[in-house]
Design a protein around this nucleic acid. Structure first.
Lengths: 126, 126
DNA sequence: TCAACCTTGACACAGCTTTGATAAGGTTGA
DNA sequence: TCAACCTTATCAAAGCTGTGTCAAGGTTGA
């Protein structure tokens, strides 16, 4: 046995063994395993475990947030979709073209219909 | 009044008025307001509300995740910290230099001390 | 051999998130 | 004027997250 066991790693990193398993489960920090399946923590993992604590404390974020950030950087399609949603600044009423506003200037029910129609042209068919 | 009210927007976008307020509260999609403070939804907002639904459904993420992604892109310090944590691949036991391993090869208590020492040097020179 | 580890899985609980409902009060338009 | 909206604030319930603890069983080393 060369590296620290989960209890030793917990002791030195400030997490509990339970949390070390949880952190692994959500995809942050995987460890090598011994033949028998025991987790092995080396200096690199210990370092990451400590900086992880700092990261959470310094920015008031949770493990789930870091896990989501990881997912974002691994799933190209996801990050693309999220980014393009975030980038698309909404066109406020003020920013809409004049004749689009003509259509918009209707009484309530007609406006709703118009909105639906506008949308269908925008996204094939909802 | 030119744009849709919150109930109309809810009706056409598939959210509830409650959720529209919630979505605004967590920082996604802010709307213009009338003099009296009524929210105004234009075509842009409606589009974003619909694509938001798709985004969540397509990738099985939550509103909180999108809010966190927004926070990431607004808070440079946060995204930098998260990114550098994610980028720092842990050096596995196998990847550690030979003489570092000499120190590592001790009985349990000494190993823990060694781990702490190793970490201190790593933190200053990470 | 056997105490002291390790593993996974399950039950449990506090606290936060997401969502609805309801209340008290202002706005709007026929 | 008054019904039907809107606003914010609050109470509440369902669900998820983070965490502990325990059980059943395998591993290790003195």
């Amino acid at each position: 046995m060369e590296a620290l066991t989960i209890h030793e790693a917990a002791e030195t990193s400030g997490w509990t063994p339970r949390m070390l398993r949880y952190i692994e489960r959500i995809g942050l920090i995987e460890t090598a395993r011994t033949e028998a399946g025991y987790r092995q923590y080396g200096p690199g993992e210990l370092q990451r475990l400590r900086t992880l604590r700092e990261l959470l404390a310094d920015h008031e974020i949770g493990l789930g947030d870091v896990a989501f950030a990881l997912r974002l950087r691994r799933d190209e399609a996801l990050s693309g979709a999220v980014d393009s949603w975030l980038e698309a600044e909404p066109q406020r009423p003020e920013a809409v073209s004049a004749d689009e506003w003509l259509r918009w200037e209707q009484e309530k029910h007609a406006r709703i219909i118009a909105a639906l129609t506008t949308n269908e042209t925008m996204e094939t068919a909802a």
